[in-house]
């Protein structure tokens, strides 16, 4: 049974995502919408991370630490240019994809297991992950032309 592995993967991913949103919020004080929304979305991921804990305990075994390096790799380079915001949002989006896919995989297992609690947790959390993705995408679309064409 590899469900614990994936729950570990998910737990780590939500944690990474919460930290990454926090990181981006703290690095863009001059962009009030970014700062405030990233703080809010970080709080969402922290809450998800908390909700997953009981399933970590329930299915605790060979837990994965795999994506713990993901954030470090994504936000690796020091960014100073006007590309920074777009690249930071880009990396956040990549992290949300990891979370989203983990949820899809776990949901399939939850259905097979008939684990109603896990299903409810999935329903609540993955809907908000989707909203995180959509916000990032809309903000990236807004920033892209100005960043690529005009900013220096």
């Amino acid at each position: 049974m590899h469900l614990p592995y994936y729950i570990g993967l998910l737990e780590n991913s939500e944690k990474q995502l919460a930290e990454a949103f926090e990181y981006v919020a703290n690095h863009h004080h001059d962009e009030p919408d970014i700062e405030q929304m990233c703080q809010k979305l970080s709080a969402w991921s922290r809450e998800h991370h908390g909700k997953v804990q009981r399933f970590v305990e329930k299915y605790s075994e060979e837990k994965s630490n795999e994506p713990s390096k993901l954030k470090r790799d994504l936000f690796a380079e020091k960014r100073h240019s006007s590309l920074t915001l777009l690249r930071d949002l880009h990396d956040l989006w990549l992290l949300t994809q990891e979370v989203q896919l983990c949820w899809v995989v776990i949901q399939q297992a939850a259905l097979g297991l008939r684990d109603e609690d896990l299903k409810a947790c999935y329903t609540f959390c993955s809907a908000r992950t989707k909203r995180q993705v959509e916000w990032l995408l809309s903000r990236i679309k807004q920033a892209a032309p100005q960043t690529l064409l005009v900013a220096e």
Binding site: D33, M37, K40, L41, R131, E134, W135, S138
Partner: peptide
């Protein structure tokens, strides 16, 4: 829009 995040 998403009234909370403002996403269109």
């Amino acid at each position: 829009h998403d009234l909370e995040t403002g996403t269109p």
